[in-house]
């Protein structure tokens, strides 16, 4: 069995058999990796906490037919600050779930990987504006997989360059006055949310903290981003239901 090395972020784990786990990871070059960690549930396992979700790891794996097998793992960043804070953990879980859903096995996932890594690094040190950070992550992730929200022209007719304040999830952007009837489920945005939306979409890991935005708008945009992501994922995002606990 050939051995290979990669870096990865653990996204999720599933129990397997008596003491093993399947670890789902995202790596830059190989995309999603599903690998078996043998004996990891035993207290004396050599892996210890190295394969817990959120951990950024340097890995050596055996390539298997179906599932790979983890041979060695070293922590690069455990992101323990996220795991030790219930709020950060809730927002971070949504990020992991989405990264898991959009990534594919054996597919270059550099963009998704870097987006997730940067978002986790920001989340680790941010004690406020976590909802905004998640919204930015969701909108950027959707852009990476080809679903940028249309905000410069009407998302339905594509002609009118002055769309109003209704955001249609179905058409993927703002609607103009003439197209309002085409999606009755479109979400109305407050003036503040509408004005901030372009900045939120363009925010970078350096600039996002400086965005001047009210908590209400932050949560409104997150709701929008969440619905937008769930629509394109074709299923609801399980972890975002638990953001209010």
């Amino acid at each position: 069995m050939p051995l290979y090395k990669t870096k990865g972020i653990a996204l999720n784990t599933y129990k397997l058999g008596e003491a093993d786990k399947i670890i789902v990871l995202i790596s830059p070059e190989r995309g999603k990796i599903r690998a078996v960690a043998k004996g990891v549930r035993k207290t004396k396992s050599k892996f210890g906490s190295r394969l817990e979700p959120f951990t950024f790891i340097d890995l050596m794996l055996y390539e298997g037919k179906n599932l790979d097998i983890v041979n060695q793992a070293e922590i690069i960043d455990s992101f323990k600050e996220i795991r030790a804070d219930l709020n950060k953990l809730k927002y971070g879980s949504v990020m992991l779930e989405l990264a898991d859903k959009v990534s594919q096995e054996n597919e270059d996932s550099r963009q998704v990987f870097l987006l997730l890594l940067n978002a986790l690094k920001e989340l680790k040190t941010s004690d406020e504006k976590q909802a905004l950070l998640l919204a930015i992550f969701e909108l950027k992730l959707m852009s990476v997989i080809g679903f940028s929200p249309h905000i410069d022209q009407c998302a339905a007719c594509g002609v009118n360059t002055k769309p109003g304040n209704l955001f249609s999830i179905k058409y993927g952007g703002l609607l103009c006055a003439g197209c309002i009837d085409r999606d009755p489920a479109a979400i109305p945005l407050s003036n503040e949310s509408l004005n901030r939306l372009p900045e939120v979409i363009k925010a970078t890991s350096h600039s996002w903290k400086d965005l001047d935005i009210s908590e209400k708008s932050e949560n409104d945009i997150l709701k929008l981003a969440d619905a937008f992501a769930a629509y394109h994922m074709d299923r609801p995002i399980k972890s975002s239901k638990l953001l209010n606990i």
Partner: peptide
């Protein structure tokens, strides 16, 4: 146990 990723809440 609470597991946001699996949608298991309080």
């Amino acid at each position: 146990a609470i597991s946001p990723i699996d949608g298991i809440g309080p």
